[in-house]
Amino acid sequence: MNESVITYNVFHHVAWGTPISIYFWLVGASAGSFVISSFGWVFGIKRYKPLALTASLQAIILLMIVPVLLIWDLGKPVRFIYLMLPGYWHSTGPMAWGSLLIFSYPVSMIVYTYFVLKNNLFWAKAFGIVAIVLALSTHWYTGVVMELNPGRYMNHTALAPILFLTGAFISGIGLLILILWVQNMIVDVKKRIEWPLIEEMAQYMMYGIVFDCFLLFLEFMQTLYGNRSEMISHELLLGVFRFPYLWLEIILGLLIPLFILVSPLKKQKYGVILASFLVAIGVYGMRVWWVMGGQYMQTFY
């Protein structure tokens, strides 16, 4: 049998790198924390009202970084405005929809937060509904951007938006728990968020982790079915992306937090905090390999 070795080839860039991974993580964490913020004011769960302001402020701040990252990453930064001009806007490009969402989501969120501050239930609820739809859509679209690349086998799956949304939910809660923990150390005793509420959020996070594991299992079933995607997923899981994929996402970001949250450790404060921290960074690992993995494998093609 003949063996062949590629002796000359050209190299193709991985066009989307770290800024895009950070951006996906930020949007996800923002959407996740906004979901928690809306529990009190939109869905009427009163015990969540005290943390609504912190959660929505976190969502706004995280999302403020996004345009800076994205515009800086463009080849022609000043031309970002083309994404919103009618003569340029392209309806079949997921990024064209995404740019509208990225600019409308923070606006609705700021208006919602204003009415939360004013304690106006009616308008807070109305804008909260709009903002939550936009929050979910903003993150859903990041999954769609990755999904609609048929040539990148690892990304081309209809599971992508659901995986991204689940990641958003758990990383948003994880980050929010960390921030509430810090906030509790700073503010007066009266204003502190009660620990049982944070434990309840951790419980939601645990459900999210279980669902994420299920999605990951579905993904493995598809990719490890013996065609070229099996080889690619092997290389990604155990090769270059071993650290973000296997260690950060699966072991540190899903399995260890799951173990903490189903064991007696969940009753301990630092157990919950450790699980939240691990989930937050674990989801970043997922963003890294999702953005760069599919492209990386084809840099030599």
């Binding site: 066009a15 080849g75 022609k76 031309r79 994404l83 806007w89 392209h90 997921p94 990024m95």
Partner: peptide, 30 residues
């Protein structure tokens, strides 16, 4: 995939790039 209609298909089959419209987002590269 192009969000700004920078890439288009000519009627004679050429797939072309309009540099004045391209924002360098690299969606098409991906």
């Amino acid at each position: 995939n192009c969000p700004t209609q920078a890439t288009f298909k000519h009627k004679d089959g050429f797939v072309l790039q309009r540099y004045n419209r391209c924002i360098g987002c690299r969606t098409c590269v991906v």
